[in-house]
């Protein structure tokens, strides 16, 4: 009974922390990027302020927009949030842990993407369709890379359950593995593409023809835009949390631990996410956006890395 209560409590706490951290992470990335480029940048809390202001504004719907424009942001944000609830954060053994299957997480993020694409096509404008076509095309390359990386993790951990993977890797049960390194690189590439970050897409661009993610949101305003921005921020947080859970699992509170280890876990989790966000900012400052036609090559390289990781792992486990 106590264990169940603890699991429920950690789950709720995790959700609240995730929601609070998402805009902060986005703000941290923006500020760090600006500083690295020699600008002062916006304050850390700017995404929060933007969201609160947008929530109070009157949304304008395009003339031919249908119910899809109104419903899609809610669907996308709840799917992303559900995916976030499944990714272990500061503690393990949360109440949804038995369902924390990487395939389901990928599926939920895919659901959010589908909602975004439909919203982009709904107003019947050129740029929305452009962004939608590109987004679905990139997903066709990102998905196999993601799943083959999951294959590597599942082979090492014996299961595709993220909670089990994190638990095993926290114990250091996987050893030093070239395959894990390759899988980490592949997952990072997929994360960059999924979050529309720099080599793939520019989150701060103002040139419509190069946009992917933002092009689908051109017609969104008011609370719809606030929801979409929250979704983007949350998606980034979920991906960073996922990478942290798999590749930096140290310091997580084990299942059934007490509040003290939760506190340590939460502090470390925050530090890990902040570190990843800073690394993202540094990477984005150092690299230029690639041409849209090169993105399939970039994601294809991620797929190749993941396949190579799997093959090397097959050979070494087959010999041992």
């Amino acid at each position: 009974m106590m264990a169940l209560l603890g699991a429920l409590l950690t789950q709720l706490l995790h959700g609240a922390l995730l929601l609070a951290a998402a805009p902060l992470l986005l703000g941290l990335t923006r500020t760090a990027k600006a500083r690295l480029m020699g600008r002062r940048g916006p304050p850390l809390l700017q995404p929060w302020r933007d969201a609160l202001r947008l929530l109070r504004k009157r949304p304008i719907l395009a003339e031919h927009a249908s119910v899809a424009t109104r419903a899609a942001p809610y669907l996308a944000l709840s799917a992303t949030l559900l995916a976030g609830l499944l990714v272990p954060g500061f503690a393990q053994g949360m109440i949804l842990a038995p369902f924390a299957d990487l395939l389901l997480i990928a599926g939920l993020l895919g659901l959010a993407r589908a909602a975004l694409v439909l919203a982009g096509l709904d107003a019947g404008t050129a740029f929305g369709g452009l962004g939608a076509g590109r987004e679905t095309a990139f997903a066709a390359f990102a998905e196999p890379a993601l799943l083959v990386s999951v294959l590597v993790l599942a082979l090492l951990a014996g299961s595709a359950n993220l909670d089990a993977i994190a638990a095993l890797f926290r114990e250091g049960g996987q050893g030093l593995r070239v395959s894990l390194l390759f899988a980490a690189l592949a997952l990072c590439a997929v994360a960059l593409a999924e979050n529309a970050r720099v080599p793939v897409d520019n989150p701060a661009t103002h040139l419509e023809l190069t946009m992917v993610h933002e092009a689908m949101l051109l017609e969104a305003s008011g609370r719809h835009l606030a929801l979409w921005e929250a979704q983007a921020a949350l998606k980034l947080a979920v991906w960073l949390a996922l990478l942290a859970a798999v590749f930096l699992p140290f310091g997580m509170a084990p299942a059934g631990a007490g509040p003290l280890s939760w506190l340590i876990g939460a502090a470390l989790w925050g530090a890990k996410l902040a570190g990843l966000a800073f690394a993202l900012a540094a990477f984005e400052s150092a690299i230029a956006k690639m041409r849209v036609f090169r993105v399939p090559e970039f994601l294809g390289a991620a797929l190749l890395l993941a396949l190579l990781a799997a093959a090397l792992l097959f050979v070494s486990t087959g010999l041992a």
């Binding site: 050893g175 030093l176 593995r177 070239v178 390194l181 190579l308 070494s316 010999l319 041992a320």
Partner: peptide
């Protein structure tokens, strides 16, 4: 074999 540092590093470099 698997999980020993000598093997793992060699594997890493080859990979």
């Amino acid at each position: 074999g698997l999980g020993e540092i000598g093997y793992d590093v060699a594997h890493l470099l080859g990979g």
